[in-house]
Design a protein around this nucleic acid. Structure first.
Lengths: 167, 167
DNA sequence: TCATAACGTGTTATAACATAACACTATCAG
DNA sequence: CTGATAGTGTTATGTTATAACACGTTATGA
């Protein structure tokens, strides 16, 4: 058994969306995207994305592999890593560095450099928009260094977990 | 042999400091800090810090272990991880999540939430000040979520590496 | 039509990163 | 002297990620 990655929270940023909506929308969006780009949205790729969007929480590669195995797919490590790399390239999945875990993108429709809010107790993660969250990178270029990718993760304790701790 | 982590750059942010100065200063600062806090700056802890500040580049835990071994210290994994945890707790070492590597802090004297600029070719890393770099977290609290720790890493290609590629 | 190249999936093996659990010593407060 | 704490050491193992190669399918195009 791997490390637990579960929990609940009522903090607004963690669940301010209709998840049924989110799931259907996301599938449709990703289908259209790959159709338009002439890329294959194969059963394996679809399944991996569904596993991630279903729970809408970060999953480790080996958790994804277990889920694949349960659903009759091959479950040797390169399977998951390859598909995850592919989905990340196209912005439908992000890696949470602080958890060595992967999460489906919440805003695949607009290009963005996402920031993540992570509860270190329940490990729930919210993807927040740069603008909404008040995070900003004032200068995209730092001293002629061309930034290609930014990782922003904010770790703390969500309201639910902090309330639970003081009861 | 582990992955290579070396390279050169002339990008200003990567070497706008006097390294000899930096080394001596850093050692003095950390000594004073632990003295003041009544914490032990043991030979092992000193050595790990020296290894990191010497090169002033990110090193993996196992690279640090090799260096420890060469210098006559024990080199089983927990040795490095424990000392690194200790030094990180006190802000003298940071972990670069994107590289699974550790680097000596460039500004141990003032509390800060550091941001890192990482060249994905030479893997050189610069620690930049939030203010100087134009990075800012406009709101420390997001929807009642108390942020305890932020990870900010910007990956790209430094001027030296991008010049080398086009020649 | 038959190479051959590109892609997607599959396999085995191994590398790279990190921690658990316990042992031993030294130091220090009571 | 005794027990608690801190620091280091050890063995073993857990967790995350990639290398290298095999095989089938599909598209290209000489």
């Amino acid at each position: 058994m791997t490390k637990k990655r579960e929990g609940k929270t009522t903090s607004k940023i963690f669940d301010d969306h209709d998840h049924g909506m989110c799931f259907d929308d996301a599938i449709e969006q990703i289908e259209n995207y790959f159709l338009k780009k002439n890329l294959q949205f194969t059963p394996l790729r679809r399944k991996v994305f569904e596993i991630l969007i279903r729970d809408h929480k970060p999953l480790g590669a080996y958790e994804i592999l277990e889920a694949l195995g349960r659903d009759g797919f091959s479950s040797s490590p390169p399977i998951a890593y390859r598909v995850l790399d592919f989905l990340m390239e196209h912005g439908f999945v992000h890696k949470i560095q602080g958890l060595n875990a992967f999460i489906a993108c919440s805003n695949p429709n607009h290009s963005h450099s996402p920031a993540f809010v992570i509860c270190r107790k329940c490990e729930k993660v919210a993807e927040v928009d740069e603008k909404k969250s008040g995070i900003s990178f004032a200068s995209p270029n730092i001293d002629n260094f061309e930034v290609e990718k930014t990782t922003v993760e904010m770790t703390g304790v969500c309201t639910t977990c902090s309330r639970a701790a003081t009861i």
